[in-house]
Design a protein around this nucleic acid. Structure first.
Length: 879
RNA sequence: GCACCUUUAGCUCAGUGGUAGAGCGUCUCAUUGACAUUGAGAAGGCCAUAGGUUCAAUUCCUAUAAGGUGCACCA
């Protein structure tokens, strides 16, 4: 072979090798394995938020998942690593708003459409960067299957999920106190707030015959009652009566109520009740049917109700009210008081509890489902203690607020009548079918837009299809102008007794230009069209499909619509429906199995009709969509991918998502698919800096994975992220560590270089026999290999990586190579052949074993070394 | 307050029922012979503390201490 450089130069290798892999199509499992019976491995990329660049945590995500995917691919499984991107609703909007602020703009001044459009462009741009970063790490994910949470079909399915939950009584709209962020102008769920101990003043105020203690004197204008404990003898004379209290803006009448909630030991044992601005007071207010006036508005300003304080913010109002109370002699005392305050996890502003109409998911039955999945051991948690945390949380759920008052997200599909009645969209079901066998199908020529008739078999198939659809509630049948479609439709219509038949010219088969009527020869109609001079082009097809979708949205019928179309165009229609990039239409076409007289289901939401309906403007909490990701990304409910790759094998994600994401996936999956979304959930910890400090921009200790790849190579970064990093633990990442594994890539490179330098093409190396001593060296490797594989299969990647490292460096390089040097460089050709065989075999085996961890350097060496029986890529070797 | 985690070499961390390992750092030596992005060698740890189980504990159990994380905490 050509002389190798003394050092491995990843900058020349990585992008070239990745491109070759990607273009080979071997990231798609159907291409990388031949056998159907080989089993499958699947994992879904936790959609990285499409609002920035890849960070170290993502890099770890990608690395761990890719190691598993590559390992199982080498083991011969159909291994799918499905890439995705998340619009990340609130997160992205916050990032985008910051950018707007820098430009001196505010989202409050922008209309919904331009704001959405701006964020869409912003997100797509970042999504592109993110994907480049994922490629740079060597992730062997199948880009032809990539999904985005704002793909059209995902949006529709998420909205459909909501409609189904509504129909099943599992979501409801309620006027309830929620967490409100005054900066971001949206409500937040319980997991989107953080809390912190803060020190505030506790003010004791004379309040009629009572003294009450409060940290929020500015809310007294919204007080409606004073509560005491039912057994508190001090106050029993007042209970049930009304008292008059003084405030700086005049007197107000308050009811005195008794409620168990009040702790007679705390403060004065008398509690002012402000239902609009405090969660507990709200509960008490509901129990006692109290009015709930508001004195703080959505922006955290005092309302008209506060008289002269109106318009002040909370801090100003508090100061002013306290000063006035003091001068009126009503302030009895004040003391420093430590308590825990919830705040917005993005801007750290104190959460203002606020009463709003919001949509909630009932958690009780969902939590039960999640716990059942745990009890029946359907999901393994790594590390195991995470299961306890999950369990605890599931046993203490509160209903999940899924309404967000932002524009970046999927709109909640609800309309309200003038009377406030709730109207849901209509679920319109379409069955996209293919005509029966045509003469062209029979003769294996391209039908395309040629008008060929059905064969007798085709007629029978159509009849069979009709019979199978008897209970499908078909009320309308649509066909193309081509007779194979029209004939099929007529057969079905007459069998089902459907009279509403319509011809849609734009669902005709793809125009394959000069290839129409020609023998198929391994090409399909779509591929032929793209190759042909005068056939349809992708852009034309997209346009045509979009027009069909418009028509579908306008359909008005009682039951299900059967669309009798053609194989290639219907597949394009489904790709366009899913919002797929045009370059993947042909990949999709290959994946869809549209046999004659079979169909796929498509459900579309059609806006309710009626006078004066107003559409809901709130969007879903982003976890409502990402919580459904494992099955939606795989094409739930009836795609072949869903059937093949779901449930997935492993979900690998950050420990911080134990509440936010993981439970939602578990219970949504249990509900919609009846099964768990993954068999194992593997949590990784935080990636910290070299000293174990959290990386943050303000500390300036952020290590960018992409810069590290640039400086030391992706393989080195991958190894340094994996080794010494067991499940659940945080890890410290330093440049020195990455550098150490960069040295390891050099070591591998030079060991291979040495063997290659001494290779002798004139010897029959691969048929040489090994001495007993050499055999025992080989056996030593086999033992190491077994142990390494055992570690990988049990998710102990940190140990597998470490053992690989040690075996290669300190056994293979230090011991085995040294022991064979004399023979390899000596004159005895038999001994030389034996030595080369031992070294060559061990090298090849190790490259395969190392490949999941260090894909680039191993692939490059594999391509350049004189191994026997080489595959096209190391990536598809067998282990 | 409750739960969970951590405590091992100077630093960051793996690991193990039979007195311990990595990376970096430190010290010494080696440079035409695959590799100085290297090699050879060295120093450095009663594995937080106290009990218990065991023939044997750094490893299992209990308690304590320190640190961390999460949850809940009422005016």
């Amino acid at each position: 072979m050509a002389d190798m450089e003394k050092q491995y130069n990843w900058k020349d290798v990585e992008s070239r090798v990745y491109k070759a892999w990607e273009e080979s199509g071997y990231f798609s499992p159907e291409n990388s394995t031949s056998g159907e019976g080989s089993g499958q491995f699947s994992t879904i990329m936790p959609p990285p938020n499409a609002n920035g660049r890849l960070h170290a945590g993502h890099a770890l995500d990608m690395t761990l998942k890719d190691i598993l995917t590559r390992y199982w691919r080498l083991k011969g499984k159909r291994a799918l690593f499905l890439p995705g991107a998340d619009h990340a609703g609130f997160e992205t909007q916050v990032v985008y708003e910051k950018q707007l602020e820098k430009e001196g703009k505010s989202r409050m001044e922008m209309d919904r459409e331009s704001l959405y459009k701006g964020m869409y462009e912003f997100t797509l741009e970042n999504k592109q960067y993110m994907e480049d970063d994922v490629r740079a790490l060597g992730a062997s994910c199948d880009w032809s299957r990539e999904k985005f949470t704002l793909d059209n079909d995902i949006i529709e399915k998420v909205r459909l999920s909501f409609v189904k939950l509504y129909e099943d009584g599992l979501v409801y709209r309620a006027n309830r106190i929620v967490n409100w962020c005054t900066k971001h102008q949206t409500s937040l769920s319980d997991v989107e707030t953080e809390s912190e101990e803060r020190e505030d003043m506790l003010y004791y105020i004379e309040y009629g015959p009572f003294t009450i203690a409060t940290v929020r004197p500015e809310t007294i204008f919204a007080d409606v009652a004073i509560a005491v404990h039912p057994n508190d003898a001090r106050y029993s004379e007042h209970v049930g009566k009304t008292v008059t209290v003084k405030t700086p803006i005049g007197e107000q009448e308050l009811q005195v109520i008794a409620d168990d909630y009040v702790d007679p030991e705390f403060g004065t044992g008398a509690l002012k009740i402000t239902p609009a601005h405090d969660g507990n007071d709200f509960e008490i207010g509901k129990r006692h049917n109290l009015p709930m006036p508001e004195t703080i508005n959505a922006y955290g300003k005092l309302t008209e109700r506060a008289g002269k304080y109106a318009g002040m913010n909370i801090a100003q109002a508090r100061e002013a009210v306290v000063a006035d109370l003091e001068s009126m002699g009503l302030l009895k005392k004040k003391e420093a008081y430590k308590h825990v305050v919830p705040f917005c996890y993005k801007c750290s502003r104190v959460i203002e509890p606020r009463i709003m109409d919001q949509w909630f998911v009932k958690m009780e039955s969902f939590a039960k489902k999640a716990l059942e999945a745990l009890d029946s051991k359907k999901i393994d948690f790594l590390p195991g203690n995470m299961e306890k945390i999950f369990r605890y949380w599931m046993e203490n759920t509160i209903d999940w607020n899924i309404s967000r008052q932002i524009v970046w997200g999927i709109k909640i599909p609800v309309w309200y009548g003038e009377d406030g009645a709730i109207h849901l969209p209509k679920r319109q079901k379409f069955l996209l079918a293919r005509h029966g066998e045509s003469e062209a199908n029979r003769d294996k020529v391209m039908g395309a837009q040629n008008d060929v008739a059905l064969t007798d078999t085709g007629k029978e198939q159509a009849l069979e299809l009709a019979k199978s659809l008897k209970s499908a509630g078909i009320s309308k049948i649509v066909h193309s102008p081509l007779s194979r479609s029209k004939e099929s439709a007529q057969i079905i219509a007459s069998e089902l007794g459907v009279s509403d038949i319509e011809e849609w010219s734009d669902i005709a088969e793809v125009n394959a230009g000069e290839f129409a009527g020609k023998p198929i020869e391994g090409k399909n109609v779509l591929e032929a069209a793209l190759e042909s001079k005068d056939g349809e082009k992708l852009a034309d097809l997209t346009k045509r499909a979009q027009a069909v979708i418009e028509r579908m949205r306008a359909v008005d019928t009682e039951g299900t619509v059967l669309v009798v179309g053609h194989r290639s165009f219907t597949s394009v229609l489904m790709s366009v429906w899913a919002g797929r990039n045009e370059k993947y239409y042909t990949a999709d076409r290959r994946r869809f199995t549209f046999e004659n007289a079979t169909y796929k289901e498509l459900e579309v939401l059609i806006a309710p009709k009626g006078e004066g309906l107003t559409e809901e403007t709130d969007v879903f909490d982003t976890w409502f969509s990402s919580g459904q990701w494992p099955y939606l990304a795989l094409g739930y409910p009836d795609s072949s991918d869903f059937k093949t790759y779901y449930p997935t094998d492993v979900m690998e994600t950050g420990a911080d998502l134990i509440f936010k994401w993981v439970p939602r996936m578990v219970f949504m999956s249990a509900y919609f698919t009846g099964t768990e979304p993954f068999k194992t959930v593997y949590f990784h910890g935080m990636i910290n800096d070299a000293k174990g400090q959290k990386m943050s921009k303000s500390k300036g200790n952020v290590l960018s994975p992409i810069e590290l790849v640039d400086e030391f190579g992706a393989d080195a970064l991958r190894m340094s992220l994996v080794i010494g990093n067991p499940a659940g633990a945080n890890m410290a990442l330093s440049k020195d560590k990455v550098k150490a594994y960069r040295n390891f890539t050099t070591k591998i490179w030079n060991a291979a270089r040495f063997v290659s330098m001494n290779w002798d093409e004139s010897l029959d190396v691969w048929n040489a026999s090994l001495s007993a001593e050499q055999q025992s060296l080989f056996d030593e490797f086999s033992a190491a290999k077994k142990s390494i594989e055992d570690h990988i299969q049990n998710f102990r990647l940190h140990l597998a990586g470490e053992e690989l490292y040690h075996y290669f460096w300190h056994t293979f390089a230090d011991k085995v190579i040294e022991s064979q040097k004399a023979a390899m460089m000596g004159e005895d050709s038999a001994q030389k052949a034996s030595a080369l065989k031992l070294l060559g075999t061990l090298l090849k085996e190790q490259l395969i074993l190392l490949h999941p961890f260090m894909p680039f350097v191993t692939e490059e060496l594999y391509q350049n070394l004189p191994f026997a029986d080489k595959k096209e890529f190391l990536m598809i070797e067998s282990l």
